[in-house]
Design a protein around this nucleic acid. Structure first.
Lengths: 208, 208
DNA sequence: TGTACATCAGTGAACGCGCGTTCACTGATGTAC
DNA sequence: TGTACATCAGTGAACGCGCGTTCACTGATGTAC
């Protein structure tokens, strides 16, 4: 908490990072300017040297939370043994992701909140949803790929949208359900079924 | 707003109903005792004749919102031409459900909120999630039923969990996405794919 | 390299406001006679 | 059926509190000479 220009940039970054964590943990409305500044060892007055208002902070914090969530997911996949879609699925629908809201996917953590927020917040999350779906679409193209299989590449974006919906929905349900065994079963059940669907490509419209 | 005992019961019911609507529209934290009482044409002081505290009200309002959401869903299916699973799917993943948060499914409206709430709220929603999954499981058993098909009845509860997750997730994503065509496409895409999965039974473990 | 000074990151008292909750009250309800 | 009265649903002033925001300030930074 020095007085130099680089200290200021660092302060702003710490405020944003802490806010991004807090909103994933307790919701957009949970952030109070006074408590937030105290939690990064500053006083509330200084806040307005960094942001115009609490509302402007929240817009930036949402963006940051979404970026941090994606980075954490990629890092988690990197650490694991597997790659690609199956690794993504395992890490996303894991007990550890369920139990670490503060650092996990911000789409899941804040979906209900943003669904009722203003256009600005919804537009920010919309872009990240498209990124999430794109990642999955790329993963699906690689997952059950048999060279020369005419079905390869035939999956359109809609399959990825289904998979994304199920991943977000299952993570949310697992976080609500109080019985730990039932919560685990939701994660495992959806994980296994999505893995199978990706491998067999049985989501293809032509097949039905 | 009379003074009889039945008036009191009616008042409590109106307070709860209004609170159930407000939390689905704007989240658990959005309810203020003063505004809530004003919106049912009473004054704030009377609130404590009906509920011990704001927190106790919220627990009851969550229960009510979940029940109202389920009732609205059943009513919507009754009104339509189709029955069973496909009707449920069409009505749940519809533009009209997406656009009427205040009266729609409370699991979707409040999933992120309850995921971070206390055990009491999570237990209340857990019970309703099990009900939601059971409804779907019953629907799936009827959906692609071919008499004598050995696969009939082989689907376990896990298929219903996948379908429930995708339904909740898709509705949430469609409410966040700002581009109306993209939002529609999410609803339609997931609706069509879940319908096909139910008909072909291609979720069965044996098949993969 | 040393000094004088403008800049500006961060401080903390103060503001008006809406919040949840309490409580003395008013007056309609409904019961006992 | 009529009267006297206890009950209690609903009222509204008052409370202490934390909120977002403002602003005069302090003192370190970093630049001009």
């Amino acid at each position: 908490m020095g007085h130099s220009q680089s200290d200021k940039a660092r302060s702003r970054d710490r405020i944003l990072g802490e806010a991004a964590t807090q909103i994933r943990d307790a919701g957009l409305e949970s952030v109070s300017v006074g408590r937030l500044m105290r939690s990064v060892d500053l006083t509330h007055g200084g806040f307005y040297g960094h942001f115009e208002s609490r509302s402007e902070l929240l817009a930036h914090a949402l963006e940051r939370a979404l970026a941090d969530g994606r980075a954490a997911s990629l890092a988690s996949v990197e650490r694991g043994a597997r790659r690609g879609f199956h690794a993504r699925l395992r890490s996303f629908l894991s007990r550890s992701h369920r139990d670490s809201r503060r650092t996990g996917c911000a789409i899941a953590a804040l979906a209900s909140d943003v669904a009722r927020a203003d256009d600005r917040a919804r537009a920010v999350m919309s872009r990240h949803i498209e990124g999430f779906v794109d990642d999955i679409a790329r993963g699906l193209d690689g997952a059950g790929a048999v060279p020369g299989d005419p079905a390869h590449g035939a999956r359109d974006d809609g399959d990825a949208v289904l998979v994304a919906s199920a991943m977000i929905g299952a993570l949310l349900l697992s976080r609500v359900i109080t019985d730990p065994r039932r919560s685990d079963a939701v994660l495992r059940g959806v994980r296994e079924r999505l893995a199978r669907l990706a491998d067999t490509g049985s989501m293809r419209p032509e097949e039905g």
